[in-house]
Nucleic acid binder design. Sequence first.
RNA 1: GCCCCAGUGGCGGAAUGGUAGACGCGGCAGACUCAAAAUCUGUUGCCGGCAACGGCGUGCUGGUUCGAGUCCGGCCUGGGGCACCA
Length: 862
Amino acid sequence: MSRPDGISGDRYNVKETEARWQKAWEEKRCFEAEIVPGKPKYYVLEMFPYPSGRIHMGHVRNYTLGDVVARYKRAKGFNVLHPMGWDAFGLPAENAAIQNNVHPAKWTRENIAAMREQLKSMGLSYDWRREVATCEPEYYRHEQKMFLDFLKAGLVYRKESWVNWDPVENTVLANEQVIEGRGWRSGALVEKRLLSQWFLKITHYAQDLLDSLATLERWPERVRLMQENWIGRSEGARLMFDLSGRTDKLEIFTTRPDTLFGAKFVAIAANHPLAAELAAGNPALAEFVAECNRMGTSEAAIETAEKKGFDTGLKAVHPFDPAWTLPIYVANFVLMDYGSGAIFGCPAHDQRDLDFANKYGLGWTQVVEPATDKDAVLGAIAKGEAYTGDGKAINSKFLDGLAVDEAKAEAIRRIEEMGRGERTINYRLRDWGVSRQRYWGCPIPVIHCEACGTVPVPVEQLPVVLPEDVSFDKPGNPLDHHPTWKHVDCPCCGKPARRETDTFDTFFESSWYFARYTSPDRDDVAFDRQAADYWMSVDQYIGGIEHAVLHLLYSRFFTRALKDCGYLGVKEPFAGLLTQGMICHETFKSEDGAWLYPTEVIPGPDGKLVHADSGAPVTGGRSEKMSKSKKNVVDPAGIIDGYGADTARLFMLSDSPPERDLDWTEAGIDGAWRYVNRLWRMVATAELPAAGTPMPDLSPETVKVRRLLHRTIAQVGEDLERFHFNKAVARIREMTNGLGELSVGDAGAAWVLREGLEATARLIGPMMPHLAEEMWQALGGSGLLAQAAWPDADPALLVEDSVTVAIQVNGKLRATIELPKDADAALAEQTALAQPQVISAMSGKPARKVVVVPNRIVNVVV
RNA sequence: GCCCCAGUGGCGGAAUGGUAGACGCGGCAGACUCAAAAUCUGUUGCCGGCAACGGCGUGCUGGUUCGAGUCCGGCCUGGGGCACCA
């Protein structure tokens, strides 16, 4: 099929039409939201984009989904807030500055302007007055104030912490930026470094963040589970081991106090204070500790690392037996920031402990016996496998005979009785380190003074504005190199002091933007309390699954912290969440495994794929997520330019449910384009009675179409409520097919056709808003469809007077019969048994039982 | 290793435990056309049959039920999340 050229003959003129309606919506201010007391509100939000310069297909899908919801809810009578903005701080802007010698601010603002135009061409129903860009002081000044309030509330602290340090770039790297132990950009070996960093106390809310997941009923189960795992609550005990020949004690954390009698060693992390102390007098140990610290914290580094330990020579005393001592090792598999950075090892019932014990010849003692196969543990350990299952305690004195859970409780009771420790809950979740040695971020509003220590910037001096006169010619943080910016006087003592040159992690900005939209014009406060109380929480949030943990968890934390500081009245930011799937597209690879663009591939003489230039064989790979590296990206701009926004939007909605991955295909977009034209042609060519003509007599066929029409109206509404957009599209197409079958020249049919086309325009309004307006206007509808109400189905037409009932014999379908609706069971049974196919299938045997499900099915059992 | 999700025509996908395959894509046949595109009509799960019709079909396997794509048990395959977390 030929590509549309925009303007030609009897074709729908996409470009002109879409631009015209976008202008009309803007002039009539259709999407500007104001507080209307008493009117039910609906806040729909899509995750705001990073301004990379161009929108991609993922954006098109995300914003189409949100726009359908926004327009539908508006038509249903809700006061809808639907804003858009820019997550504008971040590393790509700095990279562009270094590579192209353009200032991050200029690069970002130009990208925003370009992307705003692209989004506007999609016809999205945003209240553009509320647009925010997080890189502007008008935005970030408020988060500096929040930080100071969090500081006052005890939710912020500064701590020395081990980080991934890139010695070439002179900055901290996130775990994701460490690839095979090297900096992702410099390629330098990453080191662990102890650095002073700002932390937000997300762990303060760990239990509430976990418990409240149960209240998020409109979140996908999957996301709730991921957050639950991420928070990672585990119940156990903290206990103190005495150290032989010393007066201090060593604290360990365990979830298996029931296995204490199986202990063979104690291990501490390489960066445990005790390790540092012992290393000071032991060069070999010092070298071992240094080796552990050189090891990256990336996943790859961990996976390849072998368990290693160093015997410190120090002994720990068993808490239940003063005569029993255990060797203390420094071990590379013990993490300083989980529990207390120290463990006891029970080789028989923990895999890591067994691996370690086998390597250093520490032995093992079985202390749990499985209920069945009592020799299983010996066999497993002989194969190098620890037994971690259930059973009864053995070789454990006062615990003997108790089940694992009972033994845990009893061991803790004894420990608490002896004053050696207590029951405790430990979380995997760690406090959020927010310091970044980066330029393009929000300055952290504190000043370091030699005399006064760390001093918050006084509120009246906010915002601390990011200086724009910086250079990127040296590695490291440009703020640190700036000649004057960091030199300030201490707000306390007035003596020369130094500004904090670190900036916030960019997740900081995205943790509260949803609340800023409620009153973006307020300069004095982050948000107007009344506006926030009216609009929050977000009723429906839509975005990619990749943010299931970090962004969504940080936002949940932030909202709690803001509530506790009096900013907000709610603690959950997002009442409903829809996570959309990725956009995939076919890929091609050459013989040597290099990715190829689809345009480089043509069918060869024998039908197999070959390279267009060289004729070399090409393999068509499977459909994968669109990415530049795989060369399978389709630019939405070209699609919108050629087919129009409505076609792109329809395609995004019609083929797959929103949470599943969507395959981009040329055929699919062509199909959507054909349907757009078909609808337009139907309206343009139909001979219809004038609007408001009374309904003439209808033929039975016409009544049938009219029933279909009203059933569709009812079902599409239900589908949209449940975000079953693909089903809604299918039903509307089904109805279009029905309208196409109406006979021409019949007054009743023409009347139903008008009713049907009007309904179609309204039903497609949320999905294909431009075409819908065009149809609405052609049909003589009053005002803008964008402001019209959702249609109601006539309940009388939803009730069928006859139904098709399936007849089964022994569960196999043999016939279908028409029966009056709600016919009684006796009639259904009698009619069913009289069917020739039923009689033949029963082959003369009597019916043993007849199951009648009214209006559905009759099953004859012989 | 632990946790979760998904397997339905050639493809994307529909089916409150009740007629499997709605709707779309693709294919095939036809109409219109000098021809093509566009458009329209018919057909399209597989096997057998001219047909009426019959048989088989939702990853495999066992079960519950009058009836299972749907519920339960065991397995296989694919995808995702977490992970030296004590």
